[in-house]
Design a protein around this nucleic acid. Structure first.
Length: 455
RNA sequence: GGCCACGUGGCGGAGUGGUUACGCAGAGGUCUGCAAAACCUCGUACCCCGGUUCAAUUCCGGGCGUGGCCUCCA
């Protein structure tokens, strides 16, 4: 079966045809590193990691290039660094490191390239020069602005017309703009603000140009897939298209645009003012959400349980259910060997525009078969590994931060079994109650009593 | 105000113009000292109102609800 992708540009599912099967190229907008990433930021990272894995499987591991940038120049970074009294570099390096650790903990592969804006200045400046040369940009009061009226296709991704945008605009229009929708490519930096030399004086790039420049630098003028959150569709991606295609004489920047849906927390928009703002780090290492810390793979599977284009509601309930599922699989797979290839049904579901819920249905079927068949166990292990959902964890590993005293548990079990032998069932049941209170469930099997930590 | 998504059984969540996934929870059963695990059985749901159609949850229109973008938030 062929991979199909919902292309935002066309508003329909299309069969994916790479420009060069020997080098399939994907760009995904990464974080602006001024603060820890929140759980909403994790969605595109996980979703496009699954796509990365699928592409690697289809075209070969060495034939896919995945670029996910780190934006380390931005006004919010400048403000935050000043606020904390640290250097910009300290702030961005520290935040980027946490981001990479978080991404890894969520079971993601590292992208092929993680470029930084600070390392892309020459390319940014030369792209702006090209835009000025092609009459798509103009200089005004030390700024360089993109002239939207020069681009008849402006608005093609978000399907808005310039007229609509201007009518609905509530933006304060800078006096030096020719058109209210014109956006900044380069702006002046004064005093000790971070700045780089340019033909227009010391300055720094505007918000959108960095992605255009990094895409071109690492993937060429036209690449296959561009991904990101739906909220970036306008203006960020629209402007990326305008810039890259303006600089490249109309050559498309990407053939397929993919957008993941928004995330809500317990039915509400996540926001600092509502007090439900939650970072990946807090979910992994603190007990702020749902009273416990969560294993990264729990967060990953929870994210993949909804199709990427649907809105997702991030709830404690969902995490509890997901965790139980993963613990079950981990118990089932302990000691299993991995098969050669992931399950065909799962792959087929993923090839249908990354239908992860449908893929999970196939996984459940496999898990059922795996209870009695060693071959299916092997296949399940390989498939979950492929999805980034299993790497030989034990079930207890998913119960993050819930430590139990194994010696105490064994002792209680021994006492209970003694009571059972003596047919003192009232005492046996009391001891079981004690174990339950410790968060331990027991099973009397033919080979004796086993126990496990439960959520 | 303008533009755009989404609304499925108790919960989560695919999908489809007519045979209605899958997971969790729940009910009954086999089993068990009691349980658990395992296994078997059980759920005809698709926001509202019109329209198209032999037939709509699925297509079209309107309404309501939720959310997104237009305020450099993925």
């Amino acid at each position: 079966m062929a991979l199909t992708i919902y292309n935002t540009l066309a508003r329909e599912k299309q069969v994916f045809k790479p420009i060069d099967p020997k080098n399939v190229r994907m760009y995904v907008c990464g974080p602006t590193v001024y603060d820890f990433a929140h759980i909403g930021n994790a969605r595109p990272v996980i979703v496009f990691d699954v796509l990365f894995r699928l592409l690697r499987h289809t075209y070969g591991e060495s034939h896919v290039t995945y670029v996910r940038n780190i934006t380390d120049v931005e006004d919010k970074i400048i403000a935050r660094a000043a606020e904390r009294g640290v250097s910009i570099r300290e702030l961005t390096e520290g935040t980027a490191k946490v981001y990479q650790e978080d991404a890894l903990a969520l079971g993601n592969l590292a992208p092929s390239i993680e470029p930084r804006v600070t390392e892309t200045m020459p390319e940014i400046v030369s792209m702006i020069l090209a835009l000025v040369r092609n009459n798509h940009a103009y200089v005004a009061e030390g700024h360089v602005l993109f002239d939207v009226s020069s681009d008849p296709d402006y608005g093609k991704l978000s399907r808005r017309s310039l007229d609509d945008m201007i009518a609905g605009a509530r933006v304060e229009v800078a006096p030096y703009k020719k058109n209210p929708m014109d956006f900044v490519l380069w702006k002046p930096s004064e005093g000790d603000m971070p700045g780089w030399p340019s033909p227009w004086g010391k300055g720094r790039p505007g918000w959108h140009i960095e992605c255009s420049a990094m895409g071109e630098k690492h993937l060429g003028e036209t690449f296959d897939i561009h991904g990101g959150g739906i909220d970036l569709q306008f203006p960020h991606h629209e402007n990326e298209i305008a810039q890259s295609e303006g600089a490249h004489h109309g050559k498309p920047i990407a053939n397929y645009w993919m957008h993941n849906g928004f995330l809500q927390v317990e039915g509400e928009k996540m926001s600092k003012s509502l007090g439900n703002f939650i970072t990946i780090r807090e979910l992994l290492a603190e007990t702020k959400f749902g009273g416990q810390a969560w294993h990264g793979r729990v967060l990953r599977l929870a994210m993949l349980s909804t199709h990427y284009r649907q809105p997702i509601d991030w709830t404690v309930d969902r995490l509890l259910q997901t965790k139980a599922t993963l613990m079950e699989w981990a118990r089932l797979l302990h000691g299993a060997r991995a098969a050669e290839a992931p399950d065909g049904e799962v792959l087929a579901a993923l090839e249908d525009d990354l239908n992860t819920p449908s893929a999970m249905a196939a996984v459940y079927g496999l898990a059922g078969a795996a209870r009695t068949s060693e071959a299916d166990r092997a296949r399940l292990k390989r498939t979950l590994g492929f999805l980034g959902l299993y790497a030989d964890e034990r079930d207890v590993d998913f119960a993050v931060g819930q430590t139990v005293d194994a010696a105490q548990v064994e002792d209680l079990i021994a006492k209970r079994n003694a009571a059972r032998k003596a047919k003192n069932f009232a005492e046996a049941d009391k001891l079981r109650g004690d174990l339950t209170a410790l968060g331990v469930a027991i099973e009397d099997g033919p080979k004796g009593t086993t126990w496990k930590v439960v959520s």
